[in-house]
Amino acid sequence: MNPLRLVRARPKPAFTVTVDGRTVEALPGRTVAAALWAAGVTSWRTTRGSGRPRGVFCGIGVCFDCLVTVNDRPNQRACLVPVRPGDVIRTQEGTGHED
């Protein structure tokens, strides 16, 4: 059993996005975080101080742990932003800005 089968989902066709240069499939309607989880990715940010990896924590947009760079825009909350065809998703290092 997986969640899609549990609710008998018939998703619209998947599209592709890139995650740190790797092409992965994503289902429409999902958030960037859900697409990354489905692709087996659980961390996509390193912290500003000690460079530790982070991913989803609160899952509802409150904690800001899941910040990610999407299409060159850093600090997007992956758990809120919908994934779009062709998105270029990159691990965000530190602030995400070159400084």
């Binding site: 969640p3 999902r30 859900a34 697409a35 659980t42 530790r52 982070r54 924590f57 899952g59 758990c79």
Partner: peptide, 24 residues
């Protein structure tokens, strides 16, 4: 508790209910 893979209980549920996805 900051390791990727540690999520809030509600967060796991929210991701499941909306995105139909589980983290592991």
């Amino acid at each position: 508790w900051t390791l990727p893979g540690v999520v809030t209980a509600g967060g796991a549920q929210a991701m499941l209910k909306h995105g139909l996805v589980v983290p592991g």
